[in-house]
Amino acid sequence: MRPFRYSRAVDVADAVRLAGSPGARYLGGGTNLVDLMRETIEQPDALVDVTAMPGEIEETPEGGLLIGAAVRNTALAEHPAVRTRYPVLSRAIVAGASAQIRNMATLGGNLLQRTRCAYFYDNHGSRCNKRQPGQGCDALEGFHRNHAILGASAACIAVHPSDMAVALAALDAVVHLQGRNGSVRSLPVTDLHRLPGERPDVDTLLEPGELITAIELPPLPATLRSTYRKVRDRSSYAFALVSVAAVLDIADGEIRDVRIALGGVAHKPWRATRAESVLRGGSGTAAAFAAAADAELAEARPLPGNAFKIELARRTIVAVLRELAGDSA
């Protein structure tokens, strides 16, 4: 790990000011950044600790929730409003990592964690365009069982590892940001992360020095049901091969609203808009769910080692929607 300066921000303005230099990075729980620094994949010369930033979980006037970026994953998952009104979010959080890590990790940090591609992590012995653009990608013809089937590029097939972000994508969450010059803006969480294209080294659309200050959850009508299902190689403490976050409003067999996001399949939490448009206004039958999944996965471009993810995603989408539809299907 390279030596660095450490400072602790007392509030957002302080944080943005302290992180004014190009080599500075924000530090949340450290569960990903400290690891990457130890691997020398990240080499900041200054860390600005933002875990002391104010910001709790508050009700919004619209009936949603505003969540401070420094809120720990556990605190979010256990919050009564989240458990009862946004179960998909609670479920996604507790499906991720381990309890110890969830006690450390912040909301903002979770969103900004980087891929777990083993070639990305092998800083010295493997080629990776995400670490070093133009170097080449050893995953393409190597071990890529965990890798992307949707939205990947010839340069990068890495996937985003977060579970929580998948739920946030399905909830139409909004990310609140503050920039270096004090400017404030917000983004739909689905626009926070980008696809790799030719620049897999750039994970998000954040400006340099821009800080995630909060996440806003829009209100969710009480008629909506939501859940999260994660499929992985061992029964706990493993990243998703495929995960599905879904929100469904179905009455008398008709789908009034549906939102689906997929994890483990792309460089970003993958909002399944094609599947949603197939379903919206239609009937909630198993056949419709399968057709919607097929529509979404028609664009999948698998490699030999991860082709199974198409079938796995298809089955998991259908199973999750059937579960949410319950007796209505």
């Binding site: 012995g125 013809e141 071990f143 706990s236």
Partner: peptide, 25 residues
């Protein structure tokens, strides 16, 4: 243990990528 036959390098050289059973298993 994933051994990359192109260059003889072990790819999953960590306990997060090499899975051993956890309590839940």
């Amino acid at each position: 243990t994933q051994f990359d036959e192109r260059n003889g390098r072990i790819v999953n050289a960590s306990l997060s990528e090499y899975h051993v059973p956890v309590h839940m298993d």
